[in-house]
Lab assay of single mutants.
Amino acid sequence: MTDQQAEARSYLSEEMIAEFKAAFDMFDADGGGDISVKELGTVMRMLGQTPTKEELDAIIEEVDEDGSGTIDFEEFLVMMVRQ
């Protein structure tokens, strides 16, 4: 866990972390443990947004600390705390 990830967790109660985990699992449609650009786009479109591929890439790049091209749960928490 990076310093950013530990800091993000410090702002959240266990209840909030559990709620974010449920949301993360909804995004992680294939159950792979991370959110891909495609999965992020699908959920955002379900919520009425129309992000471009470039916008989706930028969202993932902003929090993808390990350079995997996807968002894992710890990175997702950082993203949610920043919102």
Rank of each mutant, 00 (worst) to 15 (best):
M1S: 05
M1R: 10
T2N: 15
T2I: 01
T2R: 14
D3W: 05
Q4C: 11
Q4I: 14
Q5A: 08
A6D: 15
E7I: 14
E7F: 07
E7P: 12
A8S: 10
R9K: 11
R9L: 06
S10K: 12
S10H: 09
S10W: 03
Y11P: 12
Y11H: 08
L12R: 02
L12T: 03
S13T: 12
E14W: 02
E15C: 02
E15N: 15
E15L: 11
M16L: 11
I17D: 00
A18K: 15
A18T: 14
A18F: 10
A18Q: 06
E19N: 07
E19K: 15
K21T: 02
K21Q: 04
K21V: 00
K21N: 08
A22P: 01
A22I: 03
A23P: 01
A23I: 04
A23Y: 01
A23V: 11
F24C: 01
F24K: 01
D25Y: 03
D25R: 08
D25A: 12
M26Q: 08
M26Y: 15
D28F: 02
A29S: 10
A29I: 06
G31N: 14
G31D: 06
G31H: 15
G33C: 02
G33F: 00
D34W: 13
D34I: 06
D34H: 04
D34C: 13
I35H: 04
I35V: 10
I35Y: 00
S36V: 03
S36C: 13
V37L: 13
K38E: 13
K38N: 02
E39Y: 13
E39F: 09
L40I: 04
L40W: 00
L40T: 04
G41D: 06
T42K: 15
T42I: 10
T42P: 14
T42M: 08
V43Q: 01
M44R: 00
M44V: 04
R45H: 15
R45I: 01
R45L: 04
M46T: 09
M46C: 12
M46P: 00
G48H: 14
G48K: 10
T50D: 12
T50R: 15
T50L: 10
T50M: 02
P51G: 05
P51V: 05
P51Q: 04
P51N: 04
T52A: 07
T52R: 04
T52N: 05
E54F: 14
E54S: 14
E54Y: 07
E55G: 11
L56D: 02
D57K: 02
D57V: 11
D57Y: 02
A58N: 10
A58H: 14
A58T: 13
I60C: 08
I60L: 08
I60M: 15
I60Q: 10
E62N: 06
V63A: 07
V63Q: 03
D64E: 03
D64Q: 07
D64N: 13
E65P: 07
E65S: 06
D66I: 13
G67K: 12
G67H: 08
S68F: 13
G69P: 04
G69H: 10
G69M: 05
T70K: 14
T70P: 01
T70Y: 06
I71R: 00
I71V: 13
D72S: 14
D72N: 14
D72T: 15
F73K: 02
F73C: 01
F73Q: 01
E74M: 01
E74I: 00
E74V: 02
E75L: 09
F76M: 03
L77S: 04
L77Q: 06
V78T: 14
V78H: 15
V78A: 13
V78Y: 08
M79E: 05
M79I: 05
M80D: 00
M80R: 00
V81A: 04
R82N: 06
R82S: 08
R82V: 04
R82Q: 08
R82F: 04
R82W: 13
Q83M: 10
Q83G: 15
Q83E: 00
